[in-house]
Amino acid sequence: MIWHNIKVGFHRLGSPPVFHRLCRVVAPWLWAGAAICAAFGLYKALYLVPPDYQQSDSFRILYVHVPAAWQAMAGYLVMSVLAVIALVWRIRTTEIMAMMGAPIGAAFTLICLATGSIWGRPMWGTWWAWDARLTSMLVLLFVYLGIMGLYAAFEDKRKGARVACILILVGLVNIPIIHFSVEWWTTLHQGSTISFFGESSMDSSMMPPLIWMVIATKLMFGAALLDRSRNELIEQDRRKGWVRQKLGASA
């Protein structure tokens, strides 16, 4: 019985008007949650945490750099799950959500690359180092751009979404391989890779802001995903009755 209810609920989400309403109701709450978590996290990160004894204040970049990097990767996983659902059950709302994840994931990848590069300047003395993590993030950015470009290049959006879903799954297999090969490549080319930060040696007082920021980026991703999906849905269904009705009601 419970299973049946879940199934029905799931199928109802495939209906554009229901999905649209869900996005409209849930997204603001997610944004609000993200704002609260981020405010908490940033306050702690900038004022409460003492400077690192080795990197002094520059390590504070970690609190935006690491959550962004994790979210860039977690976002890809979310897209992969959505892509599988989209390809197997052909649910249009999941197709749209899988596609709308790409620009947000790319945005977080960009944050990660930019802050990593800025962090590298005082720490390594250069803006860019062919560090394994930075390099694989750069490749990840191109994977995201590829997905966005492929989807945008199709006139038939449903077809484009499904083809791009295949690309998402190819990337899912490929990204770990890229990461591993790049790691190997940097250890081959440089005597020793500069270690970013010792995760195990992190002081316990440094952890809470990081956790708050990680939660905040997760909520931001979810909220942005719902916002963008809602717009895409309206744009695609602009000639359909339910959009007309909604517009008539809100106008």
């Binding site: 990840l140 191109f142 590829g146 470009g149 290049a153 990337g171 490929n174 890229i178 090969s181 790049v182």
Partner: peptide, 12 residues
Amino acid sequence: LLSILIFPLVVP
């Protein structure tokens, strides 16, 4: 598009 799609795949 072709070159953007191929680039990440050929890195390894």
